[in-house]
């Protein structure tokens, strides 16, 4: 607990026109933990993650990663700092092979420049071989080893999710952000996914896990932040959060006076 947080988000706010999608949200992510962010649809989870990985500039607030203020950095620069992410709907490089998809994830580790690449100087092929080997290892780790040379567009939906995680892992990030990785998977696939996320954590990566559904998250998360209407309504261990009155209301749509509202 005394360890310095890897990611510190302070008073992060984002407005879309008159709508406040994320409202002064603050939280920490400690190194080595699985940090879940949950909330009903439209709670602002994806908006929040897009502000952390740099795709969306916040209206106000601070993000400190490591010991560095990163709020002004673009997505590529944040990846170079060590933040990698996946998307709700996998965004793969469809016309490229699985192997190539994963190696693109390792882009930040390549050192050779334009001229040496064009002239194929000796260092280039060494670097390439090293990264290829690592990419293969990532694919094996995810059980996609036999798909290395298949086009990404030929994978099933579940495999595409895994491949996208592989691409993110290839950058060897300090923080891996997963946006609803279980969406659209069946229960067996969800179980396998949960095991995989635990195995990734055991490799030393810190994981930010965004989920709509409480079920699996509660078993694997170390701590949970709950969002509702853009505000952080609870933050703690899974069991603490599950007993929180406001969380139960947000999820079950129970009003404080006990009457249920069918809308949410």
């Amino acid at each position: 607990m005394s360890e310095a947080p890897l990611l510190q988000v302070r008073e992060l706010t984002r407005d879309f026109g008159g709508l406040r999608a994320v409202d002064h949200v603050s939280f920490d992510v400690r190194p080595g933990e699985i940090r879940a962010i949950i909330g009903p649809n439209g709670a602002g989870k994806t908006t929040l993650i897009r502000m952390v990985n740099g795709l969306l500039p916040p209206t106000s607030g601070q993000i400190v990663f490591g010991h560095k203020e990163i709020v002004r950095l673009g997505p590529a620069a944040r990846c170079r700092e060590g933040i990698a992410s996946t998307y709700q709907v996998p965004q793969l490089f469809a016309a490229m092979t699985c192997e190539e998809n994963v190696i693109v994830g390792a882009h930040r580790h390549f050192r050779s420049g334009l001229v040496s690449a064009c002239l194929f100087l000796p260092g280039v092929s060494r670097e390439e071989a090293r990264r290829l080997e690592k990419a293969r290892a990532v694919l094996d780790f995810l059980g996609l080893g036999d798909k290395a040379l298949d086009l990404a567009s030929n994978l099933t939906a579940g495999q595409q999710r895994l491949l996208e995680m592989g691409r993110a892992m290839a950058s060897e990030p300090r923080l891996l952000l997963l946006d609803e990785p279980a969406a659209g998977l069946n229960s067996a696939e969800r179980e396998w996914l949960a095991q995989t996320i635990l195995r990734i954590r055991d490799r030393g990566m810190t994981i930010g896990l965004i989920e709509h559904d409480m079920g699996n998250v509660m078993r694997i998360a170390d701590s949970v932040l709950v969002l509702d209407f853009g505000q952080a309504i609870a933050d703690g261990t899974p069991s603490q959060v599950q007993q929180d009155q406001r969380v139960i209301e947000a999820y079950l749509g129970v009003e404080t006076n006990g009457a249920s509202s069918p809308g949410r």
Partner: peptide, 8 residues
């Protein structure tokens, strides 16, 4: 988008 968050 995916390229940018992959560090490109």
């Amino acid at each position: 988008v995916a390229a940018s968050t992959s560090g490109v």
